[in-house]
Nucleic acid binder design. Structure first.
Lengths: 134, 134
DNA sequence: TTATGACCCTATAGCGTATACAGGGTCATG
DNA sequence: CATGACCCTGTATACGCTATAGGGTCATAA
């Protein structure tokens, strides 16, 4: 057997991914189906490892699987303009910015609510009161 | 028929909730099962409306359904200490704070990545390069 | 009176991103 | 040749809904 051939477990350990997640990526078209050994084990090649590393990095940066699929396709066509790549990344950044803004507004509301609580009995609780209809 | 009896559609309109969501809350033990009319329609009383409003407010503040279930139970025992209420709210606030911190770190990384992009061809793209394994 | 259309019912499947488990097969090591 | 680590497929679960199919009920208008 070729020494550069990897089992799914190797791929998992080398990328910090669970085995089930790798199979999930395959089923969802992010990772190409590898060839199989005689015993029907998946036999990965270095390219698979690179691709999975790419996916994991992009996931760590919060890209969706759809976005990653698009990024992978783009990175496979290395002569094309990278404007499309920039568009995906910028769109994602805008989503992240929006989430931050929303969560900061939320936190401000929670702060207001919690700071009012004097921790007596529920009947006087400002938190419950804030949540209850007028 | 009692004029204070409400159909599921009334409840939906008055709380800005979809009908399916109300049935979902019932199935998941957040909203008690109402009695039924002869035609098997759900017949809600004002208490249901109050409870649903509470749930929606709490959802708007990002509480999980589990947390809301707990908050509802606490608010039904109005003589008890509200320390438990405070604990749930504080725990949630801490989660929100962590999310904000994480997202801000993420945004900083995205900023770095995107700012490097000179939008030439993919082969030179710093975004793809950042994502690719060394 | 009947026909229309708005509303309601149940049951089931789907979204996204995995994770877990059951029930089995394969492989290297002692 | 037995053990245990690893692999396989298929299915179920998590969260918080949303959507759809296929039907029943009810109020209003002609």
């Amino acid at each position: 057997m070729n020494s550069s051939i990897l089992t799914i477990g190797h791929l998992a350990r080398q990328t910090g991914t669970k085995v089930e997640t790798i199979r999930f990526y395959e089923k969802n078209g992010l990772l190409p189906e590898p060839s199989r050994t005689e015993g029907n084990y998946r036999a990965y090649e270095p390219d698979h490892l690179n691709r999975l590393s790419f996916i994991r990095r992009a996931r760590d940066l919060g890209f969706s699987l759809d976005q990653i699929r698009a990024l992978l396709t783009l990175s496979d066509n290395r002569g094309q303009s990278c404007a499309a790549v920039d568009a995906i990344a910028s769109e994602h950044r805008a989503e992240v910015e929006k989430k931050i803004t929303d969560l900061m507004a939320l936190k401000a509301e929670l702060d207001r609510m919690i700071d009012q609580c004097e921790c007596g009995i529920v009947d006087d609780c400002r938190i419950i009161e804030t949540l209850s209809p007028k």
